[in-house]
Structures are given as structure tokens and as C-alpha cells.
Amino acid sequence: MNTMRAVVADRYGPPDELDVRDVPVPHLTDGHVRIRVRAVALNPADWHGVVGRPYIARPGIGWRTPRRAIPGTDIAGTVDAVGGGVTGLAVDDEVFGFADGGGCAEFVTVPEANLVTKPSTVSFAAAAATGVAAFTALQAVRDVARLKAEQHVLVNGATGGVGHFAIQFARAAGCEVTAVCSAGNVIAATAMGADHVIDYSTSDFTSGPIRYDAILDNPGSHPLRACRRVLEPGGSYVLIGGSKASLLGPIPRLIAAKLLGVVSSQRFDLVFAKETAADLDVLRTMLEDGSVDPVVSRTMTLEEVPGALAEIGRGHTLGKLVAHP
């Protein structure tokens, strides 16, 4: 076994220019585990890494060409081999966790610390889906908005990758949840646990009479001053996604939010999600006890990944898209 199939980005460009071809199997080093990938969940971060936007991200993703030639961070699979110093995992263990790219392939090497065993009751697809989107939602609810029981939180962009986890984590915290989504996803938002659903095509949540203790904003689709009008004094506005603008991305909106925060008692923040071993354990426990239920709207082959990434770039995906190499 010297080669494997992988999705490869040799240069920045539209996702449909991605190549699916044979590449060398990654070399195994000390402290790492080689995984036979059974599922890899796709994220907006993968789209950014392929197209190279916003440009302000280039120091992290590569100046002229993608630093991660093979996209894909959120993986689940079986242990194929272990490197020196690995003590907690063995060949054939079923695991999930986060890689530094490389997941859209048949094999990937991952530090042992970035993996946990997959609950036997959870599918590979669901485990892979509980990746960066779940980390982001968990940290937005728990660490940034610091939501408490009986607070009323609005999730804008509620049925996407991060949004559908945010609904579940807010409900687990004892909050009342209002979801904002398209008409076609109203039923899905209710099934995810939302107490109330607003169809953004017919209603503008910023013009209504209700005030919220927190707004978790995925698309950043409304002016900040309009969001401020429906935020309780002392409430929290948390920007999760935001603009895909070529140059600065969400930075201008974040600066504007911070300036608004200076002149009011309301807090305005941006989530910088961190994939940590501690939170991976939290997510594993929630998967196992059923308190979080990832929505996988579609599965696909590696050959279908370019089209799926283009879809993610356009927005409006339901839950998570997962590939099975």
C-alpha cells in the first residue's frame, strides 16, 4: 500500500478545479496514528482553504498555494497503524477527532491527542460531523455568550453546520431558543429543538418586538445596529460566521461590533473556535448519551467533494455534508 485516493488542491481556485487522484500514503511519525478514513465532514473552512479567501487568512492557509493540499479536518475511521509512543490506541480501534487537513483521503495521520474512541452506537458519519462546527457552537454558547437556563437566545442561520449544534447546546443549557432559517428548513429547525422558528423570507427578526438575551449570528446578514435593537441590555451578540469578502472577511464587522460594545452595556464578540482534547471528550460524552444529535443531510464519494464544497461556498446547506472515501 503505497498510494491512496485523495482530493487535492494544487493551487487556489474554484472547488470544481480540485483534482481527485492517487497520492502517496502519509508517512507515520512518533506520537501519531494513521487512520483509515471512513467519514470526513466538510466545513466552510475547507472552502476557504481551497479558494484562498478572505486574503487576510493567507498567512495561516498559505500565501500562494494552499498549505493543506488535501482538505478535510473532521474525520472518523479505524486505526490502521500507530507510531512510536502511542499508548492509548491500537490497530482496528474506531476513533474520531480532528486532523491538520488531509481528511479528504483514504488515509490520514493524526496526533494521538486529537482522537477519541467512537461510541459504538454512533455512526462514522455522525462522529465525523461532530467536529469543528460542534466545537464552534459549544464554545459560542458556553464560553462567549455564557448562556444560562431560562435565557432567550436567537440563532440566526440555525440549520447550518454550526447553527444546528448551537440550537442543541442552547437547549441543553436550559435556554428558550428562536431559530432563524429558510422556509424549507422550518420543520428541521423544530426537530433540532427550537422553541420558535422565524422564516427569514417573510419576517425580519430585527424589526420584531421581542428582545433576546443573546444572538448567535452565523451569516451576519443584518446591520449590527438593527441587531442591537432587539438585544437585551447586558445581552450578548456573538458573530460566528460572517462575510466571505475577498480581502478582510468578517474583520470589519467585528471592529464595528467592538466599537458598539464600547458605548453600551451589551457585549459583542467573535468566536475563534479551538479544537481541544478536553472539548473533544465533552462532545464524545454528549454523542454517547444522546444529548447532541448531528444532522448529516447528505453523504458522498470523494469524487463528489468538489461539488459539495462549491455548495458550501454558496451557503444554505442543511446540517453537515459528509464524504466516505
Results as ranks from 00 to 15, higher is better:
P66M: 08
G220V: 10
M192R: 04
R146E: 13
A194N: 02
E275K: 11
T73F: 08
A133M: 10
V23S: 05
L247S: 13
G88T: 14
T202V: 14
G52I: 01
D100W: 10
L89P: 01
Q266Y: 07
H222A: 13
S243W: 05
L287K: 04
V132N: 08
V108F: 07
G234H: 10
A90E: 14
V271E: 00
L260Q: 09
V37F: 04
P54G: 10
A183V: 07
Y237Q: 00
V122L: 10
P219C: 14
I75W: 02
A323V: 12
G234C: 11
N185S: 11
S265Q: 13
D74M: 12
L89G: 03
A145D: 03
V23A: 04
A133G: 14
T130L: 08
R253T: 15
G163S: 08
L154S: 04
E94M: 06
Y200W: 14
G241F: 10
N185W: 02
D46M: 13
Y12V: 09
D289M: 14
L224M: 06
A145P: 03
M300I: 10
V23Y: 03
Y212I: 00
K320N: 11
L309M: 13
D289L: 14
T301H: 10
T206S: 13
V305S: 09
R53P: 02
P306C: 12
W47Y: 15
I187E: 15
V37G: 00
L18N: 01
L248M: 12
A277Q: 10
G315S: 10
L248V: 08
S291H: 15
C227E: 05
R171T: 09
L239N: 02
F98A: 07
L283S: 02
G319L: 05
V8L: 12
I251Y: 08
V95R: 02
E304M: 10
M300K: 11
S207I: 06
L138D: 01
Y212G: 01
E232H: 06
S246H: 14
A6T: 07
L239V: 08
G220N: 08
L302C: 06
F107L: 12
P111T: 13
A273S: 14
R58A: 14
R228P: 00
S236N: 12
P66T: 07
C227R: 03
C104S: 13
R229E: 12
V144G: 03
I240W: 01
Q151A: 04
D199K: 05
A129G: 05
A194F: 00
V262P: 03
Y212V: 00
R171C: 06
L321I: 10
A183C: 06
E311R: 15
R53F: 11
